[in-house]
Design a binder for these strands. Structure first.
Length: 492
RNA sequence: CGGGAUGUGGCGCAGCUUGGUUAGCGCGCCUGCUUUGGGAGCAGGAGGUCCAGGGUUCGAAUCCCUGCAUCCCGACCA
């Protein structure tokens, strides 16, 4: 059951963690995934964190159907072009071929904006601030559990606004107060926020912003996206309204999503050779208690105390599991809970009852600590806090250590070809130089980074203005004047 | 969709070159006993249309043909 070493075979390690920790396995249909209880419990925690923030920023949940008439999709050329190759189509119903086939939604802009056309007549109907939790389908040539599956779970927010300023504010607000807040402050994964280059944008989007995170193999993972869609969908589906001034205008759209893919990110950002390391905010169990005993008499005494500890911690809103399975020995349980990434483990046996203490060990390592019964609750609360900050600071140092500012294109090319990390360099903003890098190194522009101030500005003022590179800065690829600083990396 | 490989108990594999009698091994699983503070030991046991279809042969997991599926490497993608 030993895992492959992360440093020796990262993909094999990834697969083995998912399998051995009981997170997921392949489904029957090509590229599909069975999410098992441990993986789903993590997803439920992530969902709750995201959903709470979506609601806190003024949105409501609703639900649209999975099946969309194919004819509807055909109206929207850009999205269709972007998604056509990966759309799965249902062609038969009731044993007969259908006149108008039904697609399994790859995303829901089309059906939602078609519906919005009936919901919006006046500026008084705006904004529409809606979100749905859903499954979506995209046929993929190659799938990997959580990272790329033919069906995945996500939330997709679809909002309609009176002005472009409002829509851009929304795009940025969601990124800052929902996604980055969850990913950085709950999942403890640092990253770079920024705009996508045109080639990497969502089909039909005017701007896509993203949070790009670094995995432990130094590749990038796009953890979420938030799109400013302008008036394209409103014009395509007729979402027109009377303005305050009595004129007519088309609504401005945003859409934004985060998916089960982030679970893959969680695994790859924090995991080590022993398995997962889960931040306390999403760990289905934050503390596992392993009782130790040699006979029934000891067992009942130990379990009684374990239950008392569990009850006590539970009242402090700590998620506790007592692993009282009799068929496994303690060492086996230690290894298993480490693999599953539970932050803290409490060992309690006859010796501890004697000394009125327990042994506690952290998934982040260090010596086991002996902690007295009466100090236990306070110790655990503090240890969980420390756990999170240590996990984040470890990930932050790793990221910082692997961001490189190349002095020349040769240097950058070599660095990126070997997936040595993220390269930050000035770029001329042109698609052909971007394509050249991709061809020569497999690396793409992950984003055009925004600073905190840039993001705050977008949230407050509704524009993506930002200072470009200093005048005279040259594109690292072509030597032409640079218009942007770009973050390059190989990506999942 | 191009290039490569592989399909054998739940999982991982051997056997195939050179066809042969009861298809093995490890892990896991079941039962019992002994164990239990870092992945337990012993004993007994269950579990197989050898991917599918066709062909060659006295005889096919093994050789031939066709199909299907999966995996890896590319291109596509959250």
């Amino acid at each position: 059951m030993a895992l492959p070493k992360q440093s020796e075979d990262f993909p094999a390690w990834y697969q083995a963690v998912i399998r051995d920790a009981g997170m997921a396995e392949n489904g029957l249909a090509r590229g599909s995934m069975v999410i098992k209880p441990w993986g789903y419990a993590i997803w439920e925690q992530i969902q709750r964190a995201v959903d709470d923030r979506i609601k806190a920023t003024g949105h409501e949940n609703l639900y649209f159907p999975t099946l969309i008439p194919e004819s509807l999709l055909e109206r929207e050329a850009e999205t269709v072009e972007g998604f056509a190759p990966e759309v799965i189509v249902a062609t038969h119903s009731g044993g007969k071929k259908m006149e108008d086939a039904l697609i399994l939604r790859p995303t829901s802009e089309t059906v939602i904006w078609d519906t919005y056309s009936r919901w919006v007549q006046s500026y008084r109907d705006l904004p529409l601030l809606y979100n749905q939790w859903a499954n979506v389908f995209r046929a993929e040539m190659r799938s990997r559990l959580f990272l790329r599956t033919s069906e995945f779970l996500w939330q997709e927010g679809h909002t309609a606004h009176e002005t472009s300023v409002d829509a851009i504010k929304e795009t940025a607000l969601i990124m800052r107060d929902v996604y980055i807040d969850v990913i950085k402050n709950v999942l403890k994964i640092p990253g770079f926020v920024g705009r996508k280059s045109e080639s990497e944008r969502f089909p039909g989007a005017q701007e896509t912003i993203t949070f790009e995170t670094m995995m432990r193999d130094k590749k990038a993972l796009q953890s979420c996206t938030s799109h400013y869609l302008g008036q394209l969908f409103a014009k395509t589906y007729g979402v027109q309204f009377q303005t305050r001034e009595g004129g007519l205008d088309f609504a401005y759209a945003t859409s934004w999503g985060i998916s089960t893919r982030i679970i893959g990110g969680l695994i790859m950002a924090h995991g080590d050779d022993h398995g997962l390391r889960l931040p306390t905010g999403v760990a289905p169990k934050q503390v596992v208690i392993v009782p130790i005993y040699k006979n029934d008499e000891q067992a009942s005494a130990v379990l009684e105390k374990a239950n008392a500890i569990s009850t006590d911690l539970t009242t402090k809103n700590i998620r506790v599991k007592i692993d009282d399975r009799d068929e496994y020995r303690p060492g086996y349980k230690y290894a298993e809970w480490e693999l599953k990434g539970v932050p803290l483990r409490i060992e309690i046996g006859p010796r501890d009852l004697e000394s009125k203490s327990v042994m506690i060990s952290s998934r982040l390592g260090g010596e086991k600590q002996s902690v007295n019964f009466d100090e236990l609750t306070g110790y655990v609360i503090k240890a969980l806090e420390d756990f999170d900050s240590q996990l984040l600071s470890e990930a932050q140092s790793f990221q910082q250590d692997n961001v490189f500012t190349p002095a020349s294109y040769d240097e950058m090319r070599e660095f990126l070809s070997e997936a040595n990390g993220f390269a930050l360099a000035p770029w001329n903003g042109k698609a052909d130089s971007e394509a050249q890098v991709k061809k020569e190194t497999k690396a793409t522009i992950r984003c055009l980074p925004m600073q905190d101030d840039d993001l705050n500005n977008a949230v407050q003022n509704g524009n993506f203005k930002r200072p470009g590179p200093a005048k005279g800065t040259k594109c690292i690829i072509t030597g032409e004047p640079a218009t942007e600083m770009a973050l390059f990396a190989q990506a999942y």
